[in-house]
Design a protein around this nucleic acid. Sequence first.
RNA 1: GGGCCCGUAGUUCAGUGGUUAGAACGAGCCGCUCAUAACGGUUAUGUCGCAGGUUCGAGUCCUGCCGGGCCUACCA
Length: 516
Amino acid sequence: MSSRTYYITTPIYYVNDVPHIGHAYTSLACDVLARFMRLDGRDVHFLTGTDEHGQKIEKAAAAAGMAPQAFTDKVSQSFRDLVVAMNYSPDNFIRTTEPRHYAACQALWEKLVAAGDIYLGKYAGWYSVRDETYFVEGETEVGPDNKRRAISTGAEVEWVEEPSYFFKLSAWADRLLTFYEKNPDFIGPESRRNEVISFVKGGLQDLSVSRTSFSWGVPVPGDSKHIMYVWLDALTNYITECGYPDTNNPLWKYWPADLHMVGKDIIRFHCVFWPAFLMAAGLALPKRVFAHGWWTNEGQKISKSLGNVIDPIELAKTYGLDPVRYFLLREVPFGNDGDFQRRALIGRLNGDLANAYGNLCQRVLSIVGKSCEGKVPAKGPLQAADNALLDRAHGLLAIVRMELDEQAFHRALAAIWEVIADANRYVDAQAPWALAKTDPARRDTVLWVLAETIRRVTLLVQPFMPDSTAKILDQLAVPTDSRTFAAFDRELRPGTTLPKPQGVFPRFVEAAKAEN
RNA sequence: GGGCCCGUAGUUCAGUGGUUAGAACGAGCCGCUCAUAACGGUUAUGUCGCAGGUUCGAGUCCUGCCGGGCCUACCA
């Protein structure tokens, strides 16, 4: 019997931008879930990629004197570099410029036409040449000089009409609301769900889904003057990957997706437009969309003009990749906005990683190395304190599974670190260095309990910090085929030879900064 | 304009209407010495934004106000 599938996606990133902390954050959350599910025996498919169409790309390519395809080849590379730099584990990296994606988009389009949900109309609105966008009447105002401008940007706008195909979104409001009601877990977190429902209840307008003002995109079948709306194009990537329209494709088993991870800015596209397209096409809807929040930098909104953009790769270079991965998911309740503070990062690195977790491993393994001939110590009869600690470590799997099921990374990590704190207390209470003189057998049992606790904890930390945990498991001589959750109860075998222990999470010393 | 959320220790936050409001970090004191000067124990700090109201009892429910955020705009 094949195991249960788990299909998780990042948004496809628009190649107009260089990768920043926001992209890294979304992908990181997906990566941790993908890794966790793989360890938990699920048949995982983790997809990320780039969104490469649209007028901005077309113009940027022209400005660079390049063909659009050559241009996007080059720019999308930076996102593939991010995958490597951040140690993400996607099963594929999709690009909207792939031929199979054109085929999927056009097939979906034809399905929507056949369903009677697409019609030809006229797109009209106040267009700002400078901003390259349309504004609705309410977003503009007439100034004292009698000229109409966009309120948000101050740019002059003019009335423009162009033919456009429309999707009958207005007809889907009731069915969307019914769907939300029947699937309370479809949108997370709760606050976003309320917003989406409130938005849909407010009434939906038909959606313009084609443009004629540029040509870099997927042509509309049968009317190649029109290019598909970039969001219809982009969202389709999730089913392109599974082989759409070929439902015999081996990857089709992954649809519908278990989770679309998105930033809060694009929740409407994923929770309103996308389900409507899918329903109209007679396709299954994704099981869940989760919208996370945004980071500020030391209390300030991040923007290019302020020059306070956070480069995740730079961060990883300074503080280490795994500590950065840990910090991003531990510091802020996932779903909330968060403030990035260097001091907080260093605090987590030194407090949670170096002092609590790293030092626990080091203090235990170094005694084992010195006193137990570098072998997993003998396990004698267990006392109440031993069982209490082991039981807590054992119970973590169910807790972490439950928390990650709701994308509550911070709570999963908090629960794990409580056991790490318990283990440190247990070391002090048992004082194995004192037992060495009075009761060596008991000391061995205590050390075994500790090593076993570290093993269990470390198995669960793997999705968050893959490299560091691999080192710790190496130091415990856990075989590489015993690192999934199927081996969660496979206890350390006394007598197994251990390598010499080595610190995995060095403290970050502030002075190091001055050397740079 | 409408709607939603938030305001609790120095900081970040938990707190199904029910005893003396909690945790973590930070601070003070004590202990330990295996360990990455790490670990453990312990102490302290609060007009629970403000003002009313409901209740035997309110951080928790209701109303108003102040402050902050988010969504959306002639509309729930």
